[in-house]
Design a protein around this nucleic acid. Sequence first.
DNA 1: TCAGCTATGTATAATAA
DNA 2: TTTATTATACATAGCTG
Lengths: 237, 237
Amino acid sequence: MTRKKAALAYIANDAARKATFKKRKNGLMKKVSELSTLCGIEVGAIVYSPYQAEPEVWPSMLGARRAIARFKNMSEMDQSKRMVNQQEFIRQRIVKAEEQLKKQLRENREREIVQVMYRALVGEGLQGLTIVDLNDLGWMLDNTGKEIEERIKKLKKSAPSSEQAASAEPQADKAAPENHAALNDFVAVEAVENQPWYMDLLKPRNEGDAVNLDRIDPMPSYPYGNPTPSWSDFYFP
Amino acid sequence: MTRKKAALAYIANDAARKATFKKRKNGLMKKVSELSTLCGIEVGAIVYSPYQAEPEVWPSMLGARRAIARFKNMSEMDQSKRMVNQQEFIRQRIVKAEEQLKKQLRENREREIVQVMYRALVGEGLQGLTIVDLNDLGWMLDNTGKEIEERIKKLKKSAPSSEQAASAEPQADKAAPENHAALNDFVAVEAVENQPWYMDLLKPRNEGDAVNLDRIDPMPSYPYGNPTPSWSDFYFP
DNA sequence: TCAGCTATGTATAATAA
DNA sequence: TTTATTATACATAGCTG
């Protein structure tokens, strides 16, 4: 966007896109910090980065959380502006809030499972694609509660020999080191079977004192796996 | 930061600061949108603006919410880095999430009550101080569930005339200027008595299918009235 | 206050190492 | 790949109306 006149469109070339992303992200965060400094206000920025897994935070985790809380507040307040009927409005708000809560809880459980699987099965060095794979698995488990068994059967069937399984490498992480060359679904499933405490997570938790998840709508088409690499990049240069 | 070399520090002059804020905020949001377009990623930005009350959203409310969710995700992910014990970590996460949920619900109810009282009692023109007052009242009601009656008694005692009571606008939405010359606690309480639907809000809601609010900690010192301007500015030029 | 307007400082696309 | 180096496009501080 300098020598050539701007071409404000998606950059097809992967490398170029990544380079641009990094540069612009840094620039953006610098601007953010400047704005905060110059005007003495709280600012937070969240960028979902396909290239970076670890979040860096600016100005601080707390600041970010506060900003988020404020933002939520305001969205509600804003709605109220056009409120005509008190009760209706309030009811709507309640419904919305409850939906949000459910969603949050649901997402949380997903994360738990993904976490556990990830931790249980994968070494420190293999973040990238593996996380995506585990996400997919986590979703299924969380959603159906039975798909896990199907998956186990299916995978066992298609890879009865543990050696074969080892060489399968389906979803494939690129630079997998020696020991983890065989990070695939089969391995994941085996680990699951051997870890009862993981299975416990699949059961619905005690929800008497929590949100009722009964009527939870089906999983949203959330970009958990798909083009989705891993999430977020909260950065300060 | 152009003709003079940058002076990256708080701008003392009010007007200049505001001008800079506006310009830079616009520039920032432009960059944000560009980043999103060029790299095909989701981006959200939240700026708490002292100058703007109404939130504008970019790229969209949904996008913002998603980004926020991701961010939360990542903060947890980060924590997990140092996690040693899977189960322990997960339990902690669950606890945290549930606390968050409770807080959210609680805040929501507060807002409901404040809203209702505000709408019921106050014309459009009287925001400022009145809101603060009503907030206080709402808090009390929400907290004790009985203070309302005490308050009613007390106030009735000090103003027993029914005519006075009759002048209290019942459903009272928008602006009813003349009638509201006497916007005080008494009016407020009368309105409450005449509006069963409001009283309903004071009762704990059906919590079988919601978060259990039993163990909710006392109200946080949230800036509901106080120096609180109004929040947030999610902007796209 | 709010918009232009420039002169200038910055950010960054393309390129090279 | 990442990092460093430009040449340019862009953002914006200080003005002005």
